[in-house]
Design a protein around this nucleic acid. Structure first.
Length: 195
DNA sequence: CCGAGGATTATCT
DNA sequence: GATAATCCTCGGA
């Protein structure tokens, strides 16, 4: 079952927690299907969160965060890496969930080809986009539609006891309280969580 | 095993 | 012109 738009209309922290265990499906231009279970997420919500791209207001890059939920927000960071987010909360309420890691399920051989390596295929936000061949061309993909290039469907669920929460990664010079905000979720002891 | 440094470009000031 | 929600390689232990 593909997760409906109403799912993404919730608060980004709720969505980030609920996405753990869901299956991220990617259809390549050639038609091949790849997928993996989401095992690590981070929430970026509100205009006041100094760690969020949205905190300086709407720009051409972050515009998807301000638009209707249930679409992707894909952007380039460090000049090299594409990062995949799911846009959350109602329109004009900028929020997104960063997909930080997945456990490979389908198309593992293709992931190895895309990554040019055998290991560390999807345990990091830029690694998984490379493994799934996701780029800026996939910005604003409809995550709730089966004819999209990327969507997310229900797969497995985890009890709170199996979930870990902590501060987000890569905050750089972001000041408190945003630096330590516990808005990162991951599946405890899952080997595909980043670092 | 670990830490340092370079890669590389869209985006915003 | 500076910065960035990161990753890889390489050198040393």
């Amino acid at each position: 079952m593909i997760l409906p738009p109403e799912f993404y209309a919730q608060n980004a922290c709720v969505v980030a927690r609920a996405l753990l265990g869901a299956r991220l499906v990617r259809i390549l231009p050639c038609g091949e299907r790849l997928s993996g279970m989401i095992v690590e997420t981070e929430a970026y919500t509100g205009l006041t969160d100094l760690a969020s791209h949205a905190h300086r207001g709407r720009t051409p890059r972050n515009a998807p965060m301000f638009e209707a939920p249930a679409r992707s927000y894909v952007y380039l960071t460090y000049g090299i890496h594409w990062l995949l987010n799911a846009v959350c909360e109602p329109a004009d309420q900028p929020a997104a969930v960063l997909i930080r890691a997945i456990e490979p399920l389908e198309g593992i051989d293709l992931m190895k080809q895309n990554r040019h390596m055998e290991r560390n295929l999807t345990n990091g936000p830029a690694r998984l986009t490379q493994a799934l061949a996701i780029t800026g061309a996939d910005n604003r993909a409809a995550l709730s539609e089966a004819d999209s290039t990327i969507w997310i469907e229900a797969h497995q669920t985890f009890a709170d006891e199996a979930i870990q929460v902590g501060a987000r990664i890569g905050m750089g010079q972001v000041p408190e309280p945003w630096f330590s905000q516990p808005w990162r979720w991951w599946i405890n002891k899952n080997p595909y969580v980043s670092r």
